[in-house]
Write a protein that binds this DNA or RNA. Structure first.
Length: 291
DNA sequence: CGTTACCTGAAA
DNA sequence: TTTCAGGTAACG
């Protein structure tokens, strides 16, 4: 469910609530042991018990709790995971898979229908993360950084955006939305973007992610923040899950196709299949315009 | 590279 | 009953 804006929304909510709290215990519900990826809940519990949470971070779609033991609890929510910050007396939520008991009679609950989400305990953040591309809202996400990830690649630009090794944090919603804003067809080969298109895509990625954060994330189905509230970004999407609805810009019917196994939404008029431009043509144009 | 598996519930 | 789902790792 959650992409960068949804995870960032959760991070911002949890940060003031969790910093300074002491962990009293950690437990995993029966049948959900796999979320620890082979580690024993008793082992994690023994290590985090008594630790104080000193920071709440995010990298891509990963959320991290730094402990005063210098270890990190690293959470990935995958498709349907969510976190709930509750009083211990608060009614159990259905599909609770793990619970971090805190001082002050508080709990951080990991709730996940599909059991795809993961929790790790590591000494260094990198130990819990796969290869991730740049943070798209940070200063090191430049047009050049984006192009370094896309150049030479023949895959559809949509698939390239979903590859976390290229750019961290983009998922299916924001990939479709960014491509719409950049006027790029989702099946355009990633490495074929021309300079102007690279800049447009770079700006569009930042814009849609910032807008997503500003609206507290997108709640299409399962996503809710740590208080159980929905985001508002679903009211602002231009193409995502708007199949057959009229495009806001040109009124053409939004189309749904499958790219790299993922549902993909785009406007056939605003995001046309690009005309193939031969190398000689662009060279000639540059010569003629004196660029 | 594209496809499949991992899970479970909601929607078609 | 079948299909679909905001993600990723492991296949072939």
């Amino acid at each position: 469910m959650p992409e960068l804006p949804e995870v960032e929304t959760i991070r911002r909510q949890l940060e003031p609530l969790l910093i300074g709290r002491t962990i009293h215990s950690f437990r995993v519900m029966p049948g959900a042991e796999r979320l620890l990826r082979g580690r024993a809940a008793t082992d994690i519990d023994a290590q985090v018990r008594g630790c104080i949470i000193t920071a709440v971070g995010r990298r891509g779609k990963y959320l991290s709790l730094r402990l005063d033991s210098d270890q990190l609890i690293v959470v990935h929510l995958r498709m349907t995971g969510s976190l709930r910050y509750r009083d211990a007396e608060h009614a159990d939520e259905q599909f609770t898979r793990a619970v971090v008991r805190l001082d002050g009679n508080r709990e951080l609950r990991f709730v996940d229908v599909r059991k795809f989400g993961t929790i790790d305990l590591v000494e260094r953040l990198e130990d819990a993360l796969p290869t991730l591309g740049p943070e798209p809202l940070s200063d090191d996400f430049t047009v050049d950084a984006l192009w370094n990830a896309l150049r030479g690649r023949l895959v559809a630009v949509k698939s390239a955006l979903l590859d976390q090794a290229n750019v961290a944090g983009i998922g299916n919603i924001y990939a479709d939305e960014a491509l719409f804003l950049a006027h790029l067809h989702p099946e355009c080969p990633a490495g074929s973007l021309r300079p102007r298109e690279r800049s447009a895509l770079h700006a569009a990625i930042r814009q849609v992610l910032e807008q997503g954060v500003a609206h507290g994330g997108a709640s299409f189905r399962d996503y809710t923040d740590s208080a159980g509230a929905a985001g508002a970004q679903q009211y602002y999407v231009r193409v995502f899950r708007r199949t057959d609805e009229p495009c806001d810009v040109c009124a053409a019917a939004i189309r749904r196709i499958v790219v790299g196994g993922r549902a993909t939404h785009f406007c056939p008029t605003c995001q046309p299949v690009r005309q193939r431009t031969r190398q000689v043509t662009s060279k000639r144009r540059r010569r003629e315009t004196g660029a």
